[in-house]
Every structure is written in C-alpha cells, then in structure tokens.
Write a protein that binds this DNA or RNA. Structure first.
Length: 503
RNA sequence: GGCGACAUGGCCAAGUGGUAAGGCAGGAGUCUGCAAAACUCUUACCCCCAGUUCGAAUCUGGGUGUCGCCUCCA
C-alpha cells in the first residue's frame, strides 16, 4: 500500500511505526462558524482513509482535534455578545451535526484545545529551556532560526519566505517568521489561562503538538489536513514538536486538495463558501460523498450544480442496483449473502493480502463454492482485488468507484438471466465495498413517517386495481401526479410496484 | 519574487512507455400496456513545440494557460 507523503513529495510504501497500529491525527476545525463544503471534502477524505485502513486490518487510532479558542472565536464573541465558550459550543454542535449527516465516522478521540492547556504549557516550557523559544512581554515565540530543519515540509527557506513576506513585523519578534506559542491577554475581558509568562492563551499551532503527543505519542504515523495547512501550520507544528522532543514528528504527511467554486478556492476569507447544511438541503450525503470521491483526494475539485447532479445520478445507479435486486429477493437474503462473503474481508484484514491465490485452500472458500457458482465467486474476488489495488495506490477513489459500477452492472445483468438470484452476491459485495468508502446504499429515502408509508401502500394498491382493469388512463395519471410531488414509481415484472423519492 | 500543483471526448475523471477505465449528459435499440429502472450499441490520437525511444497521454527540455501556498483558512 502506497501513500503520498507531502514532505518527500513521493509515494511511500505504507508501514506503520508499531506493527499494525496506526496513529492518525487530522487537524480539525476552528469552531467559529458553520462548516462549509471545504470542510466536507477534508473530513470525508480522511474518513475514507480511516475506514480503508481499518478494512485493511490496521488498528487505527484516529484523533481529530477541535480548536475552540482562537482569535476568530474571540472576535465572533465580541461581535455577538456571547462568550467564547458559547460560540465554540454552538459551532462545535453544528460541526458534529454536519459530520453525522455526512455519515463520517466519529474519530476515536476528539480533543478540545481548551482542555489541554497544561500540556501545551509544558511543551512551551521545554522549548524555552532548550533555547528554541523566548518570552517577550507576556508572549512566547518560537525561534525559527534556531531550528535548522525549518521549512523542510513546505519546501521553503527563510530567505525566500522573506522576499514574499506578508507577515506583519513585530518588535517583540526576533525574526518576522517567529511565531507565537503563547499570547498574553490584551485585557481582562479576553479569556486566558495562568502560565509562567502571565495570563494568556495558546498560539494556534501548539495545540496540535500537545494533543498529538498526549493522545498518540511523540512520533505518529499520519498527520493530515487541507493543503492550506502545510504552511505555516504544519511547518510550525513540526518545528515545535521536533525541537521539543528531539525526534521525528510524523512519518507520513498527507494533504487534501481544495474545493473550488468558479475556478477559485472556496474559503472563508474569500466569502465564496457554501455551507454543508445548504448543500444537504438539495443533495443527500451519498451524493456529496460521491461528488468528492470522483476526484482523487489531492486534486482540486470544482463545485457546481452540474457536478452535483452528475454525482446524484451516479450514486443513484449504484443504489438502483441494490434496490432492483432487493425487489426480486429480500433484504434478509442480501444480509445472508454479505455474511457468506465476509470471510474474504476478514482474510484481507488478517493477512493484508488479497485472497486471490490462496482462495482454494481456504476452508470457507470451499463452502463458498457450494453456495456460489465459481464464475461468480471469481468475479467477486477479482472485483475485490481491483478495489484493493485502486485504494492501495494512494487512495485512488475514482478508480475504486469504477469497480463499484462494474459490480453493479454485473448484478443488473445477471438479474435479467436465469440465475437472477445470484445477483445477491454482487450486491453483497457492492454494499460491503461501498461501505468502506462510507456510502450507505441501503439508506431509505422513503417515507419520513409511518403515515406517509401507509398512504403510499394505499395508493399503489388502488393503482394496481386500475392496472388490472387495464384502466391505463387512471393508472398513468396516478403515476404522473406522484412524479409532480417528487415520487417515482417503478412497476416490476411480477406486478410488484416500488416507489422512491426523486430527490 | 520564492515554492508547488494541474492541463485527457459535450461535462467530470482514471491512466503502470506499447495504439485511451469509469461516471454524467446525448443518440439508436431491447424490455415494458405506456413509463421508470435495467440491458445492448454509439463519439478522443490525450494544451503547443522540440527531444529521448522501435514505440510516449505516460520520460526530458522549452513554451502557453489555470490554480494554490508564502496573512486567517480544510
């Protein structure tokens, strides 16, 4: 399995520091406003990485922090009259809600900056003792000139940085690129914590160094975030942690590309962002995830209605495969099929190998052949193999998605043959793999309540009677009227009729 | 100014040096009472120029264009 490491700018063979344990840290949001599509991309990307690593049998500890104290939060508090805590709590709630709705897995640990101030102070103390930091008038700054490896991650050196410098000079700093580890409170109204340097609050970067160390250790496997964090955030984190602990901070630095809108980066400062909540009003979680995963995670992705519509129709196709097979069999049968093929997944997790060559020797596999015709079993294994090859190649989700379409196509095709019932196994594979990518194809987008569901049954039954009487005028009219309110009917061969919401 | 990324059919997009996956949209057909869904068929010499090579979308050099980071940002 290969992952692209930002620091070396190359694909590296993935091998965790400690056996099969993976320590993964993702920079979380600063909670001062509603999360937007850029956040969605970032956290869906790392959600998929997390899910895939687990699928591959790694024992992953996923930490994603919450920045709940920061200048922007303070400003928002001043503007609105709420306390910084109230602001942070409100938008943390909004963030969690959005993440849930997008079906992203909860990180194993989600630490908040304000709950780890002591740990940050400890690191700052160490940095001062080691000569990498200096106090200045209640602030504490990191001395970049003293850290020889500064700039290695972002491929910058201090001289070049200076030529394009946009940082404001400060008399307190010895070098314009020195950055704050600790900031003194301006006055008593600002939130602050006591420290050896007086009352103040942490600088932005130190929280990640502290929480990463506390929850994962001094050296971790994966540190991820948006590309805009490479400089200065990650460069600075790296400097702090490596200066303080004297060892490498991160084995694999990984960064996701941006969401663009009108050929421009979507960002708060440009004001061209669309909130996750707004997108969810029009498109569901599967659609948004599909939209994001059709591009490789390091490439930019252009947001637009056309792209979302295309994603909506794409995911619908996968979903139709599930629903069409479900109508000729049953949900239970599909579940059973999932259980039957699950040993393949266990095998991948256990051995980290695709059970392609070894399949004949597996006990379960022999059972499998009794239940599934060999050509179907082979096809399933081949798909699994293709999926793994795609994802092993730096999480090539566009390619992985093409495997899902292939499986869905096979299921649909076999549905029209004599051995239609074996479509179950394709669907089982489809569901399992789509799950690794965080899709939920079984999610009912049907009746929002029991009453609506019962009403639909009544309508379909009445229409069925008119169809049996060959009253096409009436049955077509019922169907047309339903389309107008966003409900699509499908008549199946066995006289069964199913319905779904079109949006 | 420094650093970096990208340029593939109408749109999106994958692509390991050997004559271009997949999705969306469009067209034709099959199925269906008609639809819907599905299935079948259907459209590319890969920004330009030069070079390396028996052979390049894929490597090298040079253009052109777009985007990003260097201030907060996922």
């Amino acid at each position: 399995m290969k992952v692209f490491d930002t620091q070396s700018q190359t694909l590296k063979e993935f091998s965790p520091l400690d056996d099969n344990k993976v320590k993964m840290y993702v920079c979380g949001p600063t909670v001062y406003d509603y999360p937007h599509l850029g956040h969605a991309r970032c956290y869906i990307t790392w959600d998929v990485v997390y899910r895939y690593l687990k699928f591959r049998g790694y024992d992953v500890t996923y930490v994603r922090n919450i920045t709940d104290i920061d200048d922007k939060i303070i400003n928002k508090a001043l503007q609105t009259g709420f306390s910084t805590k109230e602001i942070a709590d409100k938008y943390y709630f909004e963030f969690e809600k959005a993440m849930n709705e997008l079906n992203t897995a909860k990180p194993d640990i989600e630490p908040k900056a304000t709950e780890n101030i002591e740990e940050m102070i400890d690191i700052i103390k160490t940095l001062c003792e080691k000569g990498f930091a200096y106090p200045a008038d209640g602030d504490v700054y990191f001395n970049v000139a003293n850290f020889k490896k500064y700039g290695r991650l972002s491929k910058q050196n201090l001289e070049d940085l200076k030529s394009g410098a946009r940082v404001e000079a400060s008399e307190k700093k010895q070098n314009p690129f020195d950055f704050a580890l600790w900031k003194a409170v301006k006055d008593e109204t600002e939130p602050g914590w006591n420290s050896p340097w007086g009352k103040g609050r942490p600088g932005w970067h130190i929280e990640c160094s502290a929480m990463s160390k506390k929850f994962l250790g001094e050296t971790i496997d994966i540190h991820a975030g948006g590309q805009d964090l490479i400089f200065p955030h990650h460069e600075n984190e790296k400097a702090q942690s490596e200066a303080a602990f004297g060892k490498d901070f991160v084995k694999y630095w990984m960064h996701n590309g941006f969401v663009k809108i009108n050929e421009e980066k979507m960002s708060k400062s440009l004001g061209n962002y669309i909130t996750i909540g707004d997108v969810l009003k029009k498109y569901d979680a599967n659609t948004i995830r599909f939209f994001i995963l059709t591009n490789h995670y390091r490439m930019p992705v252009e947001f637009g209605d056309q792209a979302l519509e295309s994603a909506k129709n794409g995911i619908k196709r996968l979903k139709n495969a599930y629903e069409d097979i479900k109508t000729i069999t049953s949900e239970e049968k599909i579940k059973e099929a999932e259980n039957i093929i699950s040993f393949l997944f266990d095998e991948v997790a256990k051995t980290e190998h695709i059970p392609f060559h070894g399949i004949d020797s597996l006990e379960e596999a022999q059972g499998l052949e009794k239940k599934i015709p060999p050509e179907i079993a082979n096809s399933l294994i081949l798909s699994l193999k293709n999926f793994i090859n795609a994802m092993d190649d730096d999480f090539n989700t566009p390619k992985a998605l093409s495997v899902l379409f292939e499986i869905a196509g096979r299921a649909q095709k076999i549905k029209q043959s004599d051995s239609a019932e074996f479509g179950l196994f394709y669907i089982a594979m489809l569901l399992k793999l789509s799950n690794v990518l965080g899709f939920d194809l079984t999610k009912e987008e049907k009746a929002s309540d029991e009453l609506a569901s019962q009403l639909m049954d009544v309508i379909i039954n009445l229409r069925q009677i008119s169809r049996e009487q060959k009253n096409w005028e009436m049955s077509d009219r019922i169907r047309d009227e339903l389309v107008k309110i966003g409900i699509t009917l499908k008549d199946h061969k066995d006289k069964k009729t199913t319905w779904s919401l079109s949006d």
